[in-house]
Design a protein around this nucleic acid. Structure first.
Lengths: 116, 116
DNA sequence: GTCAATTGTTTCATAGCCGTATCATAATGG
DNA sequence: CCATTATGATACGGCTATGAAACAATTGAC
């Protein structure tokens, strides 16, 4: 099942969701941070700094700092890889899963309200 | 016609669109800037600094600076209102319209690729 | 054991955004 | 007129993000 969506509806959807997030004054992530978070939760593990940097086409410090910021918010966590201690394994958290669950619901609700 | 969309698809859609925008290394707007831009293009004019600030629930300087940034990118323009010269009327630009048109198309394309 | 390669982090200098408070300009009302 | 109100812009101090470069820790090859 593909999702039917026309450009104008798509823009209205982005508008509505963005408006809700801005007004909510809660967690405010950069677009890059958001992509990192979604990658961690939507794609199969393991996730490393290097892998995420390559996938997004950004430098490693960008990933490190995004993980710092989201770690402070308890949206992700980090562990050294026991097998190769140079690697850092990025893991999901309960709070991160909850945040994205609510975010997905917000999008769905916004989509349902879209004018015909 | 309402848009059918389930939470997991919604998150995948956000992921895909965000990934494309980050990789593109082009125009990189804040979430607030994006909401301002979409408001200007989707809602009926006239748009003022004060009106946008109220709608988004942010302070006026946030709007002024967002308009500065987007004005530098030629995504919006400003004119004094001849009737009441305290007001500033925010206007659309060709480049802004083109940018959002492409963005809408990107969302639609991403939606079509979503796995069932 | 030693040296090179790999990984993630930190440092550095720069740039941008934020909210509060203040400012300059313009309209309005007595 | 002159005081008051309204609008948008600016100054300020603080915080955060950025890329490039240097860094420490670890692994692997010889």
């Amino acid at each position: 099942m593909s999702v039917r969506l026309r450009p104008i509806q798509a823009l209205k959807l982005w508008h509505e969701v963005g408006l809700t997030m801005v007004r909510r004054h809660g967690v405010d992530l950069t677009s890059r941070q958001m992509v990192v978070l979604l990658t961690i939760y939507l794609e199969p593990p393991p996730h490393t700094v290097r892998g995420l940097a390559q996938k997004l086409g950004v430098t490693k410090p960008v990933i490190t700092r995004a993980l710092d910021a989201m770690g402070d918010l308890d949206l992700v966590s980090r562990r050294r890889d026991p097998a190769d201690r140079r690697n850092v394994i990025i893991q999901r958290t309960v709070r991160g899963a909850l945040f994205l669950e609510e975010f997905g619901d917000l999008i769905v609700e916004s989509a349902q309200v879209l004018a015909p």
